[in-house]
Simulated scan of single mutants.
Amino acid sequence: MVSKVSVTRRAGRVRRKLKSVANGQPRLSVYRSSKNIYAQVIDDVKGRTLAAASTLEKDLKGKLKTGADTDAASAVGKLIAERAKKAGVEKVVFDRGAYLYHGRVKALADAAREGGLEF
């Protein structure tokens, strides 16, 4: 079992590296639970969320079989890319948090790239 301290350290390590290469770009942050997946585009300079999407939204929830598979992650990735572009964001840095770049996290990232976000 992985302790909460090690997960927090891993996420901090990833974010520390991201902030050094971000050069003021917003970051696309991913949170993955056992039942859903969430994504936010965050401007760390101003401390504001520019766009957000998750599998809990009414328009996605009806279409998806479950919120915890790669199809759901792809749908959230496309939606976050669309909303980020509407907010005027073209380039982001990808913040995978403490999660490995695999499975649902990778599916979300690939769908966001297909939707037009650059990272």
Rank of each mutant, 00 (worst) to 15 (best):
E57R: 01
Q25W: 13
S20E: 15
L28Q: 07
V92F: 06
P26M: 02
S34Q: 14
K17V: 05
R113C: 06
V89I: 11
L50S: 03
R15V: 06
L28H: 01
H102S: 10
V93H: 11
S74H: 05
K106R: 10
Y99P: 08
G47W: 02
A111T: 04
I37W: 07
K85R: 15
D95C: 11
E90V: 12
R83L: 12
F94G: 10
G24R: 09
P26G: 04
R27V: 07
I42C: 11
D95M: 09
G62S: 01
K86L: 08
K78F: 14
F94Y: 10
A53M: 06
R48G: 04
Y38A: 05
L50A: 03
S34Y: 14
A81D: 12
I80D: 02
G47K: 03
H102L: 07
L60K: 00
L108R: 09
K78S: 15
G97L: 09
R15Q: 09
D71W: 03
L18Q: 05
K106W: 06
R15A: 08
A81S: 01
A51Q: 10
K91W: 10
V76D: 07
E57F: 09
I37C: 04
V45A: 14
G77P: 02
K106S: 08
L50R: 03
A98K: 13
P26W: 04
R13N: 13
L108F: 09
L18Y: 07
A51G: 05
L60C: 00
R32I: 13
S33K: 02
V92D: 01
D95T: 08
V76I: 03
D43E: 02
V76P: 00
K46M: 13
Y101G: 06
A39R: 03
G12M: 11
L60P: 00
